[in-house]
Measured scan of single mutants.
Amino acid sequence: MGKSNSKLKPEVVEELTRKTYFTEKEVQQWYKGFIKDCPSGQLDAAGFQKIYKQFFPFGDPTKFATFVFNVFDENKDGRIEFSEFIQALSVTSRGTLDEKLRWAFKLYDLDNDGYITRNEMLDIVDAIYQMVGNTVELPEEENTPEKRVDRIFAMMDKNADGKLTLQEFQEGSKADPSIVQALSLYDGLV
């Protein structure tokens, strides 16, 4: 993909415009910024974590950033290329609610087996709590990752089998306004 070129080839721009919710001009602008920050044309896990640390200076986002990195890194080569970056950004910032929920499901399904187990969710929720640090005051019933996961599973795990399917996750998330709101945070920002 033209590693350190400051412009993408027209056919690449066209393809990314088809695969995302961005215009050709927006794709070019994002590429310019991506190459400025990642001259090699790729972003590794350490660089990704560094970006998260800028956004969450009062907590430790390392663990959460690693989980997000793994979802962005579609081809699992340990690096995020621009096409992976822009497609994930498109879903998280401008995707439909169902697209965002499928993306979030992939984030929580750490072993990619098609289910979110209690332990997988606990890993992610714990990482989120570490990331936000003491900057967020949580209600008593959610002031630990374990309590939050218990509440989520009580609401979403309809067949009580200890794991969530994509359908259970989507339906449960849509029924909880706070989850829908959290997924909409990026709307309109890009």
Rank of each mutant, 00 (worst) to 15 (best):
G2T: 05
G2L: 01
G2K: 05
K3S: 15
K3G: 15
S4Q: 01
S4V: 14
S4M: 03
N5D: 03
N5K: 14
S6Y: 09
S6C: 04
K7W: 06
K7R: 03
K7D: 06
K7I: 04
L8E: 10
L8S: 09
L8Q: 03
L8Y: 10
L8W: 04
L8T: 02
K9G: 01
K9Q: 15
K9Y: 14
K9E: 04
P10H: 15
P10C: 14
E11S: 15
E11L: 01
E11H: 11
E11Q: 00
V12Y: 13
V13M: 11
V13T: 15
E14C: 05
E14N: 02
E14P: 15
E14T: 04
E15N: 05
E15A: 09
L16Q: 15
L16A: 15
T17L: 02
T17I: 15
T17P: 15
R18M: 12
R18N: 02
T20A: 14
T20L: 12
Y21I: 13
Y21S: 15
Y21A: 07
T23P: 13
E24Q: 08
E26S: 10
V27F: 15
V27T: 03
Q28I: 13
Q28E: 09
Q29W: 15
W30P: 00
W30C: 02
W30F: 01
W30Y: 02
W30L: 07
K32D: 03
K32I: 13
F34C: 00
I35H: 14
K36Y: 11
K36V: 08
D37R: 05
C38L: 02
C38F: 04
C38S: 10
S40C: 10
S40G: 14
G41R: 08
G41M: 02
G41L: 00
G41A: 03
Q42A: 10
L43Q: 09
L43V: 13
D44N: 04
D44L: 00
D44A: 07
A45D: 07
A46P: 07
G47S: 13
F48K: 12
F48N: 01
F48V: 15
F48I: 12
Q49V: 04
I51R: 05
I51P: 03
I51S: 08
I51G: 03
Y52L: 10
Y52P: 10
Y52I: 08
Y52T: 01
K53I: 01
Q54W: 01
F55E: 01
F55K: 13
F55H: 13
F55R: 11
F56G: 02
F56L: 10
F56Y: 06
P57K: 04
F58S: 01
F58M: 14
G59E: 09
D60W: 14
D60N: 08
P61I: 01
P61A: 03
K63S: 03
F64C: 10
F64P: 09
F64M: 01
A65V: 15
A65W: 06
T66R: 04
T66I: 10
V68C: 01
F69E: 07
N70C: 05
N70D: 11
V71H: 14
V71F: 05
D73Y: 14
D73C: 07
E74R: 13
N75I: 07
N75V: 14
K76M: 08
K76Y: 14
G78P: 13
G78T: 05
G78R: 11
G78W: 08
R79W: 04
R79F: 15
R79V: 04
I80W: 07
I80M: 08
I80L: 08
I80C: 12
I80N: 13
E81Y: 09
E81R: 04
F82N: 13
F82R: 10
S83H: 12
S83E: 04
S83I: 07
F85G: 10
F85T: 02
I86R: 04
Q87Y: 06
Q87E: 01
L89R: 01
L89H: 14
S90I: 03
S90T: 12
V91Q: 12
T92L: 12
T92N: 13
T92E: 15
S93W: 10
S93P: 11
R94W: 15
G95C: 04
G95A: 08
T96D: 06
T96I: 08
L97E: 15
L97V: 04
D98F: 07
D98V: 06
D98P: 09
E99V: 13
K100F: 15
K100Y: 08
L101K: 13
L101F: 09
W103M: 09
W103P: 08
W103S: 03
A104Y: 00
A104N: 00
F105M: 12
K106M: 08
K106L: 11
K106H: 12
L107Q: 01
Y108S: 05
Y108H: 14
Y108N: 09
Y108R: 03
Y108Q: 13
D109C: 02
D109V: 04
D109L: 06
D111V: 04
D111C: 12
N112S: 09
D113R: 11
Y115Q: 11
Y115F: 13
Y115W: 08
T117S: 06
T117D: 03
T117M: 08
R118L: 11
R118P: 13
N119G: 02
N119L: 01
E120H: 14
E120Y: 00
M121V: 09
L122S: 03
D123G: 11
I124G: 01
V125F: 09
D126L: 06
A127P: 15
A127E: 06
A127N: 01
A127C: 02
A127L: 01
I128V: 05
I128D: 00
Y129L: 01
Y129K: 14
Y129C: 06
Y129G: 14
M131F: 03
G133E: 09
G133L: 04
G133A: 10
N134G: 05
N134H: 04
N134V: 09
N134E: 15
T135A: 05
V136H: 06
L138N: 15
L138M: 00
L138A: 02
L138T: 05
P139S: 12
P139F: 08
E140V: 00
E140G: 14
E141Y: 04
E142T: 00
E142M: 01
E142L: 05
N143S: 12
P145Y: 03
P145G: 05
E146Y: 12
E146A: 05
E146D: 04
K147M: 04
R148V: 15
R148N: 12
R148M: 00
R148L: 09
R148G: 07
V149K: 05
D150N: 11
R151P: 04
I152F: 08
F153D: 05
F153M: 07
M155V: 07
M156F: 14
M156G: 09
D157C: 02
K158C: 11
K158V: 10
N159T: 05
A160T: 04
A160V: 07
D161A: 09
G162R: 08
G162A: 09
K163V: 06
L164Q: 05
T165N: 15
T165V: 09
T165I: 07
L166V: 13
L166F: 04
L166K: 04
Q167L: 15
E168R: 04
E168D: 12
F169T: 03
Q170H: 03
G172N: 15
S173Y: 08
S173H: 05
K174W: 13
D176W: 12
P177Q: 04
P177N: 00
V180G: 12
Q181T: 09
A182L: 01
A182M: 02
A182S: 07
S184I: 02
S184Y: 05
L185D: 07
L185S: 07
L185A: 01
L185V: 04
Y186C: 10
Y186K: 03
D187G: 13
D187T: 00
D187E: 10
G188L: 06
G188V: 06
G188I: 08
